[in-house]
Amino acid sequence: MIMQTTMFALLPGIFATAYFFGWGIFSNMTICIFTAVVVEAIMLKMRAKDLISLKDGSAVLTALLLGVALPPYLPTEMLIIGTASAIIFGKHLYGGLGHNPFNPAMVGYAILIVSFPLAMSTWPLAQNDIFGSTKYEPTAAETIINEPSFDGIPFDGIAFDGKTAATPLDTLKFRGAKTIQEAWTAENGFSILAGTGWQSINIAFMLGGLVLIYFRIAHWQACFTMLLSLSLLAAIFYDGGGSASLGSPAFHLFSGGTMLVAFFMVTDPVTAPEGNTGLFIYGAGIGVITFIIRSLGGYPDGMAFAILLMNAMTPLIDQFSVDHR
């Protein structure tokens, strides 16, 4: 029941992603779920377990979370590799649901981003959202001179399959000496909080996640401290939005996969510590590592690595925070 409710809570975010980035997310989800069910069935068969545990929905949820987190229109073979490694290495080799020390979806994601960094950071161009974009809109005459055909109008008789763009996190990181204000007005894809489209998707995932927390299906502690530590660090290093700034707290909260990870991955009960103290430490650690990788690391969004690192710390945290008597 918990698995099914969690899937329903993902719906607002899924529809928001589909609205801004097109139908790719649905093909992602379909291929991931299909692979997950097939691989899960094969693994259960090989481990001589009853196929009835397919019905617990955990494999489908893992696939769904992975499919939603991956860039839409990712090539099919990558989707299959990611999902299969999530189910095999992340879950079944450790003895299946409840025994896995690492979040399976994040294992799949990390394997994909290390193996296919280019494909994994190629996102479609976002549609304008309800908040509008802060980019300076050229007049019709300027458009013709500077950007001959970037409105999807066939240029020299060649039609576009689609348009891609750097994610706001990348744009901000590689903006050179520009201040935050300059980057937001000069570059494509920024809106009032964060990236165009991205902010609405994050808000949608947050709404779904808040429902889970309201009905006590997900614990709030780790999720809260993760968002808190991420925004605190962003506030400390905001530096008045100058050229050395690492982005505002709002930007970090509503960029990339922040809300999806905070409400749907961090709250995974199997891979998180027990007890309040443990959960607070766990969440705060994820927030800190995410911020460090986002601002200093080579990968665009460090959330999968942050989760895996804190998953690895979980037994250690339990050792010190849980009273073993």
Binding site: V107, A110, I111, V114, I289, I292, I293, L296, G297, G298, Y299, G302, A304, F305, A306, L308, L309, N311, A312
Partner: peptide
Amino acid sequence: LAFMGFTGM
């Protein structure tokens, strides 16, 4: 794999 997140720093 998790520690690879720190590469590039």
